[in-house]
């Protein structure tokens, strides 16, 4: 196996790496920095709506710190936008399981988010063990597990184990769900 030559790195303290060969407009970077700047603006505007109780003794009211945070966020985001515009792109994180050459796979991310969203309904409807089964099975399948039924079974096992360890043994009140509620051990 041959390792491809690593892209030249220029992670100096003042900027990210310069854009590498296939130059594409870094729309995502601009959008993210723009959203951060917008959050900063929102913090500043929102700070003006914080009620200052009349006759409060403190010199510094509840608005001052939010103003400062908003300003910091706006200033830093604008600085990032300027950097990106000058060609200092962000350096995506490295990791042991990350393929440095792979493009971003948005579909998998969307699938995982969808799996995670099922928790909102399932934890209270179907109970913790089944919510974990769906989350684990769905996530493993999205990530490329070969046998989906095995993933679901492992997920169910994990859900029941955590239910027993955390719910019954450590006393966290995880809902067992209508299917299991009649078994006394799951009550903790």
């Amino acid at each position: 196996m041959t390792s491809p030559a690593p892209a030249p790195r220029d992670a100096t303290a003042s900027g990210g790496a310069p854009a590498s060969a296939p130059v594409r407009a870094p729309i995502g970077e601009f959008v993210f920095a723009g959203v951060c700047a917008a959050l900063g603006v929102y913090a500043i505007v929102g700070a003006g709506f914080i009620r200052v109780p009349p006759g409060s003794a403190s010199v510094l009211g509840p608005r001052v710190f939010p103003y400062a945070v908003g300003l910091l966020l706006v200033a830093a985001s604008v600085a990032v936008i300027v950097q990106v515009a000058r060609g200092h792109r962000g350096v995506p994180d490295d990791g042991e399981d990350i393929d440095p050459d792979a493009p971003t796979d948005w579909l998998t991310v969307a699938k995982l988010v969808a799996c995670f969203l099922t928790q909102l309904l399932l934890i209270e409807w179907a109970g913790w063990p089944f919510a974990v089964m769906v989350l684990f099975g769905g996530a493993a399948w999205s990530l490329g597990a070969k046998r989906w039924w095995a993933a679901l079974l492992i997920g169910l096992g994990l859900g029941l184990t955590t239910q027993l360890v955390f719910g019954a043994w450590l006393g966290l009140s995880l809902p067992a769900g209508p299917l299991l509620d009649w078994i006394p051990i799951f009550h903790g």
Binding site: G16, A17, C36, G40, A43, L73, A76, S77, A79, V91
Partner: peptide
């Protein structure tokens, strides 16, 4: 992190 403004954006999000 790799650049000062990016670190400060991250800090600002946390403060918010």
């Amino acid at each position: 992190g790799s650049s000062v403004p990016r670190g400060l954006v991250s800090l600002g999000l946390g403060l918010l």
